[in-house]
Amino acid sequence: MLTVKNLRKSFGTVRAVNDVSFSVASGQILGLLGPNGAGKTTTVSMVAGLLTPDGGDVLIAGRRLAGDTDPSKRRIGLVPQDLALYDELSARDNLRFFGALYSLTGRTLDTAIERALTLVGLADRARDAVKTFSGGMKRRLNLAAGLLHNPDILLLDEPTVGVDPQSRNAIFDNLETLKAEGKALLYTTHYMEEVERLADRIVIVDHGTVVADDTLPGLQSRVAAVAGAAATLESVFLTLTGRSLRD
């Protein structure tokens, strides 16, 4: 469903993403891991059409993504790292606005809002202002806003930052439901256990390049072969990206 081919992006003299390639199939969750500054968010931004790549392609169902108004963007849903919500508006009004950006109107929009709010467990708070929500509720609404237009591909940029275990678990359940519906999910995070639980494949990037692209067992066996012992995802990650601090 989503294919990223040789993506490149530089900011001034800094090469943020260098020849990154991977693909995500329908009904699959791809975990995108990397230390701070590895190029994860830049990659997601290019896939979402927020940044123009210096080189390479983003293919949606085999079709190259190009331009602000490319209809293929309707097949992508973005859940940004920030809580991209209007605090003064109600949950429903937020979703009404974000749905309208995809030209959803009338009954279609109302149904989409109900469905998204029900999925994330906020249907009973639809009329409340977002500023009255807890951090976990905002995170769930952030997810709902990315789902409104029923995209085939969901880009999740650290969607569980700062939430309690209950909300995180609820979000995981939502993502597994979406996976079961056949959606392709690209999931970036720093939390290894999230990827261990959710991801079908794992791509590890460092210094803007892909250093590993495999399933969890595949990665573990690669590191075990070198270290001679059973490996966790964290040890795999540290082996591949090193132990030096990234700021």
């Binding site: 927020l50 992508i76 790292q81 920030d82």
Partner: peptide, 10 residues
């Protein structure tokens, strides 16, 4: 980050 969401729409 609201503009990210807005700009990701067509």
């Amino acid at each position: 980050g609201l503009w990210k969401r807005v700009r990701s729409a067509p």
